[in-house]
């Protein structure tokens, strides 16, 4: 078991190396010299050269065959800096990327986890109910809703929710993580405002953050919810016709216990896979939701980094998101063992 975990973690390294190579190469394939983008097209060649030296963009790309240390190249510098936790500075804002990540990522985590929570609770319940009542109106109805969840553009859904709950009913705030009047009134501990509100005993922050979180997490939940519901339904259908379910029922177990303990537990593996994948996606940032609700997460941050050719932001940001994604998938794989003891890791 430990050996398996160790091997899986070791396996992350080549994946990340591959991604780093891809990101690095793609960024440099895109037209647009960062020195010109930063300094403007009217800058002098000397100014550009000086900036390239400062940003180490004058070094060879992958390996240095021009004499001197063979590893003195842009790519090797990028990889070694990342490995040592030095993410560099954003070209555009001239701030440490680690600082920006520290501010942006908690916003993404808070949104992703609450959206996933909604999606799992509602999705699994819907899936189980439709599977057990297969062919009923309830089944058809909930699957249509699931289909809608996948198909409705989040952008549109977000706007409609804002219109209904903020403009018409004035129940919820249309955007941001907190009212602007609360900005700067506390020092975040985790950056997850719900948690911070509790830890600091500031219930005004907790309730305010909660009100701000409802709409974006509901909107964002629609996508994973739909896949979780459909996956649960089909996995449950497969399991419910197995012999051991019939046996369980035959020995007198109630329908509820049979479905939940014998059915759902065995149907969970593919569902967990889907949940893990979805969490990975959500933690990569939800550009559309973040845009509609002015949510200061990592999705827009990366997108703007790409638009501004902010090499360090994109390189470190994508690596960071990939690392999170791969780690979560590894965790999901490892967790199979706990949901299904039949699985043995060798």
């Amino acid at each position: 078991m430990l050996g398996y975990i160790f091997r899986r973690l070791l396996g992350i390294i080549p994946v990340l190396l591959g991604i780093s190579l891809l990101v690095f190469t793609l960024l440099r394939t895109i037209p647009g010299d960062p020195a010109i983008i930063i300094l403007g097209e009217r800058s002098t060649p000397e100014q550009r050269a000086a900036l390239r030296t400062k940003l180490k963009l004058d070094r060879p790309l992958y390996l240095n065959f021009e004499g001197g240390n063979v590893f003195e190249s842009q790519y090797v510098t990028y990889i070694t800096n990342f490995a040592t936790g030095d993410f560099g500075d954003s070209i555009k804002t001239r701030q440490a990327i680690s600082k920006e990540l520290k501010e942006r990522f908690p916003a993404t985590i808070e949104l992703a986890l609450s959206a996933l929570l909604i999606a799992v609770v509602v999705g699994v319940t819907t899936g189980v109910v439709s599977a057990t009542k297969r062919g009923s109106l309830l089944d058809a109805g909930s699957m249509i809703v699931a289909l809608l969840g996948v198909s409705i553009p989040i952008f549109w859904l977000g706007l409609m929710m804002q219109y209904l709950f903020s403009v018409k009913l004035k129940w919820l705030d249309p955007s941001l993580r907190l009212d602007t009047s609360l900005h700067g009134t506390f020092k975040p501990i985790t950056g997850l405002y719900l948690l911070d509100g509790l830890l600091l005993g500031r219930f005004d922050i907790f309730t305010n953050a909660f009100k701000h979180l409802i709409m974006p997490s509901l909107a964002l939940a629609t996508v994973p919810l739909a896949s979780i519901a459909r996956m649960t339904r089909s996995a449950m259908l497969e399991v419910l016709y197995q012999d051991y379910i019939r046996t369980a029922r035959a020995k007198g177990l109630s329908a509820r216990i049979t479905i939940l303990r014998h059915g759902l537990r065995n149907a969970l593996i593919p569902v967990i896979t889907v949940i893990g994948l979805q969490l990975g996606f959500l933690l990569g940032g939800a550009v559309l939701t973040e845009t509609v609700f002015s949510w200061p997460g990592i999705g827009r941050w990366l997108l703007d980094g790409i638009l501004a050719r902010d090499y360090p932001v994109v390189q470190s940001g994508v690596m960071f998101v990939s690392l999170v994604f791969v780690l979560i998938n590894t965790l999901v794989d490892i967790s199979y063992r706990f949901f299904d003891p039949r699985i043995q890791f060798k």
Binding site: V15, I19, L22, V23, L26, L27, T29, I30, G32, T273, G276, L277, G280, F281, G284, L303, I306, L307, R309, V314, V318, S322, F325, V326, N329, T330, V332, D333, Y336, I343
Partner: peptide
């Protein structure tokens, strides 16, 4: 239990490959 891992890497690559598109 390896299959999901492979699939997810495929998605990740797709995401990374979208960078130049977005930039363009």
């Amino acid at each position: 239990f390896r299959k999901p891992g492979k699939r997810s890497i495929g998605w990740l690559l797709l995401l990374v490959l979208m960078i130049p598109l977005i930039a363009a």
